[in-house]
Write a protein that binds this DNA or RNA. Structure first.
Length: 552
RNA sequence: GACCCCGUAGCUCAAUUGGAUAGAGCAACAGCCUUCUAAGCUGUAGGUUGCGCGUUCGAUUCGCGCCGGGGUCACCA
C-alpha cells in the first residue's frame, strides 16, 4: 500500500521537477473519514519552496496518475494533507496473500540477519524468581521474538554470578538451617536469606547426606551447601521460566571472566589508557574523563571488584563475540549502573550506540482492589511460580506485556483469573477459538477445505464488501508493519493492543454476518477472511508467547 | 540536592513516534441469544491530556520551569 504510493510519488516529483529533501511518509489517519492513508509531504515541502501547502498538494495530486480501480479517492484536506482511499479490490486481493504466507505472515527482513543478543532475567541463583523477574522474562522473550520475526539472528542470554558475597551468604544461610536441624539453637547469620526455600534445601541436604556435613570442616561444608543450593535454585528458576515458555540459548557465568583473564585484561587496558588510578587502597575508574559526574571504584580495597568491572568486561565480550546489536533488559533499580558500563565500553573502543538498554518499571499486585504487600527481606513476597499457579502462564505473560515497559504495571489478580470478556487474554484467545469452531463447522458442512492452498484461487474475495468485513481486512493487513514498529521501539504492548483490536474487529464481523451460509461463494470468501484472521491472531500470540487455543 | 521513569475519563492504561474531532477496558446505566461458541455484540454517559511558558502550519508527543507520585545516586548487585 505504502510502497505503491511511494512509487507513484517519486514519479510525480520527477514530472514536476521537484527534488524533495523532506521524508515521504504515509500513515493511517486516526479518523476513518480521512481515508486509508495520508501524507503530510506537501506541508513539509511547502516551506522551503515558499509555496502554499494546499496549492502544492493539489499540484502533486494532479501529477500522481493513480489507477482508478485501486484508488477510489484522493483529496487535499485540512492544512495540506493528501488523503487516499483505496478500493475494496485493493484490499481484498491481499487477503489471499495472508493465507498463502500463513505462519510466515508478519515476518520481514529489516534485521537482515544482524547478529543480536538479548540479555534478560540474569538473576543470581540465590532464591526464587520474583514477579518483577517475570515481567522481565516476558518482555525479554517477546522482544527476542519480535527481533526474530523482523529478521534478526537472535541469541537469548542469561548472565549470572555464582561467586561473591551473595553466594557466600546463600551458603552460610543454608549451612545454618542445616545445622539447626540438629541443634535448634544454632545461630542464623544476621543478614542471611530468610526464605522458606532455604529450609527446604537444608532438608534436602539432610535427606541425601544425613549428618555427614556436621563432621566436615566448616569451609568444606559450606562449599557443599553452596553447590547444592545453587543447583537446586537454578533448576527451580529454569523450571519456572520454562512454564512461561522462556528458554535461553546461553547461560553466561560471570566467574568465567575471571578464570579466563578477561577481567585483568580490561583493567590493564584501561590503565594503559590512563583511565585507572589507585587511591585509598582501591582502584578507581576515571569516569569523569568519560563524561560522568564522579569517578567510580572498580576494585575495592579488599581486592574484590565491584559489579562495574565484570559488567564492562562482559559487554566487551558481547562485542568480541560478534554481536552487532546488544539488547539489555534491566529493572528500574539498575538504572544507575548503565552509564558506567557504557562509558567503559566506549573507552575500550566499542560503539555504545549498538547497546540498547530497555528499562522496565516495577510490578504491583492487586487483589480485591488492595495492593498485595511484599517484602523481600521478610520473605513474604509472592514468587513468580505462585503467580503462575494462580492465574496461568498465558495470563501472566499477556498481563506483563499489556503496558509500556516504562510504566509501572498494576497486575489485577482478580481480572487475570476471570474467565470472561473482561479479561483481555480470554478475549483475544476466544476470538481464535471461535474462528476454529467456525472452520470446524464449515468443514463438517462440506463448505470448506482447511488445508488446500491450491484451491485458494477459486475464492472470490471481491465479494467481501460489508463495513465490518473491510474493517477486519484492513486491520489484518497492518500486522507486518505493526510487528516492525513494536520491534524497533522495543514496545511489546503495541502488539497486545493490536491483537485486542483484531479480536474486536473479528467479533464485530461475526456478530454482523453469518459465515456458513447457503451462498457458497460468499461463504467461502468469508471463511477465507476467518482463516486470515486466525493466522494473524495465531502469529501474534506466538510472538507474545501465549497459546492460541482451538477450543475454549 | 543530582539524575531517571510516570502524570491522559471515577479506576487501569492506549494513542500509528509531531498530525486533523485524544481512544480502549473496567466500573455505571440501557438494550441484543430458536442461529457458525453470549468467554460475544450495540448504545448512553464520562476530558482544559498536572500547571505555565516556548519551538511551528500543528504539541498528549519536542525544549525549559514549576507541582505531585515512584525509583536510583556504595569500596551491594
Amino acid at each position: 500500500m505504502k510502497k505503491y504510493l511511494t512509487e507513484k510519488f517519486i514519479a510525480a516529483f520527477e514530472r514536476l521537477n521537484l527534488t524533495p529533501e523532506t521524508k515521504l511518509t504515509f500513515e493511517k489517519p486516526r479518523v476513518e473519514a480521512h481515508g486509508d492513508l495520508t501524507t503530510n509531504v506537501a506541508m513539509l515541502m511547502a516551506k522551503p519552496l515558499r509555496k502554499n501547502p494546499r496549492e502544492l498538494a493539489k499540484e502533486l495530486v494532479n501529477a500522481l496518475q493513480l489507477e482508478s480501480d485501486l484508488v477510489s479517492n484522493v483529496e487535499v484536506a485540512g492544512p495540506g494533507f493528501i488523503n487516499f482511499r483505496f478500493t475494496e479490490k485493493f484490499f481484498n486481493r491481499q487477503v489471499e496473500q495472508i493465507l498463502r504466507e500463513g505462519d510466515r505472515f508478519g515476518r520481514t527482513n529489516i534485521g537482515n540477519g544482524k547478529k543480536t543478543q538479548v540479555e534478560f532475567v540474569s538473576a543470581n541463583p540465590t532464591g526464587p524468581l520474583s514477579v518483577g523477574h517475570g515481567r522481565q522474562a516476558a518482555i525479554g522473550d517477546t522482544i527476542a521474538n519480535l527481533l526474530t520475526w523482523t529478521g534478526h539472528d537472535v541469541t537469548r542470554e542469561y548472565y549470572y554470578n555464582n561467586a561473591g558475597r551473595q553466594m557466600r551468604m546463600l551458603a552460610e544461610s543454608t549451612y545454618a538451617r542445616y545445622m539447626q536441624l540438629f541443634d535448634p539453637t544454632y545461630p542464623f547469620p544476621e543478614d542471611g536469606y530468610q526464605g522458606e526455600y532455604i529450609r527446604e534445601i537444608a532438608d534436602l541436604l539432610k535427606r541425601d547426606r544425613g549428618e555427614t556435613l556436621r563432621n566436615l570442616a566448616k569451609e568444606e561444608a559450606l562449599a557443599i551447601c553452596k553447590q547444592v543450593a545453587e543447583k537446586t535454585l537454578f533448576e527451580a528458576i529454569k523450571a519456572v521460566l520454562a512454564r512461561m515458555g522462556v528458554h535461553f540459548d546461553v547461560f553466561y557465568n560471570e566467574d568465567s571472566l575471571y578464570t579466563t583473564g578477561k577481567i585483568q585484561e580490561v583493567v590493564d587496558e584501561l590503565r594503559r589508557l590512563g583511565l585507572v588510578y589507585d587511591q585509598d587502597g582501591a582502584v578507581w575508574l576515571k569516569t569523569t574523563a568519560l563524561g560522568e559526574e564522579k569517578d567510580r571504584v572498580i576494585i575495592k580495597s579488599t581486592g574484590e571488584p565491584t559489579y562495574r568491572l565484570p559488567d564492562i568486561a562482559y559487554h566487551r565480550e558481547k562485542f568480541r563475540r560478534g554481536f552487532e546489536l546488544i539488547v539489555d533488559i534491566f529493572g528500574a533499580d539498575h538504572i544507575a549502573t548503565i552509564p558506567d558500563v557504557l562509558a567503559g565500553v566506549r573507552a575500550l573502543g566499542y560503539d555504545p550506540e549498538k547497546v540498547k538498554v530497555v528499562i522496565h518499571q516495577f510490578v504491583t499486585l492487586m487483589r480485591n482492589g488492595q495492593q498485595v504487600k511484599m517484602s523481600k527481606r521478610a520473605a513474604n513476597f509472592v514468587t513468580l511460580e505462585e503467580l503462575i499457579d494462580e492465574v496461568g502462564p498465558d495470563a501472566v505473560r499477556f498481563f506483563f506485556l499489556m503496558r509500556s515497559v516504562s510504566s509501572h504495571l498494576e497486575f489485577d489478580l482478580n481480572l487475570a483469573k476471570e474467565q470472561s470478556e473482561k479479561n483481555p487474554v480470554y478475549y483475544v484467545q476466544y476470538a481464535h477459538a471461535r474462528i476454529a469452531s467456525i472452520l470446524r463447522f464449515a468443514e463438517s458442512e462440506g463448505v470448506f477445505w482447511s488445508s488446500d492452498l491450491h484451491r485458494l484461487r477459486e475464492i472470490d474475495f471481491s465479494l467481501l464488501k460489508e463495513d465490518s468485513e473491510i474493517a477486519l481486512v484492513k486491520l489484518l493487513l497492518e500486522f507486518p508493519e505493526l510487528v516492525e514498529s513494536a520491534c524497533c521501539g522495543y514496545e511489546p504492548q503495541r502488539l497486545t493492543n493490536y491483537l485486542h483490536d483484531v479480536a474486536t474487529a473479528f467479533h464485530k464481523f461475526y456478530h454482523d454476518h453469518r459465515v456458513v451460509i447457503p451462498e457458497r461463494d460468499l461463504a467461502q470468501a468469508r471463511l477465507g477472511l476467518c482463516l486470515a484472521a486466525k493466522i494473524v491472531l495465531r502469529n501474534g500470540c506466538a510472538i507474545l508467547g501465549i497459546t492460541a487455543p482451538e477450543r475454549m
